[in-house]
């Protein structure tokens, strides 16, 4: 049961990674790509980490730290990138 749960989480995360990263190759605006990247990099990586946490709970301190820093830094990076690139667009 736990085996399938953890593998399911990891598979979901990997699926999010692929599906959210493919729009990078397209020709949309930076902000649109940021939306899909926030799915891929934040939510996908969170799912992978949770999967690992279920699989190997022994290393929980490291994984919890990784979960936390993923959650905070990735979203803040999304905001900073959105802010910097949009200010440039106003300027043009």
């Amino acid at each position: 049961m736990l085996y399938w749960l953890s593998n399911g989480c990891i598979a979901l995360g990997l699926f999010f990674w692929f599906w959210g990263t493919f729009p990078l190759l397209g020709r949309r605006s930076v902000l649109f790509k940021l939306h899909s990247l926030s799915i891929a990099d934040t939510l996908g990586s969170l799912a992978i980490m949770v999967g690992l946490l279920i699989k190997i709970p022994r290393e929980w301190p490291l994984l919890v730290l990784a979960l936390f820093s993923l959650l905070v830094w990735n979203t803040v990076l999304g905001y900073v990138l959105a802010y910097c690139s949009s200010v440039e667009m106003d300027h043009d």
Binding site: H35, S38, I39, L43, L71, T75, G78, A82, Y83
Partner: peptide, 9 residues
């Protein structure tokens, strides 16, 4: 920003 449909710009 965490929710994928919205980003603070």
């Amino acid at each position: 920003t965490l929710t994928p449909k919205t980003i603070v710009q």
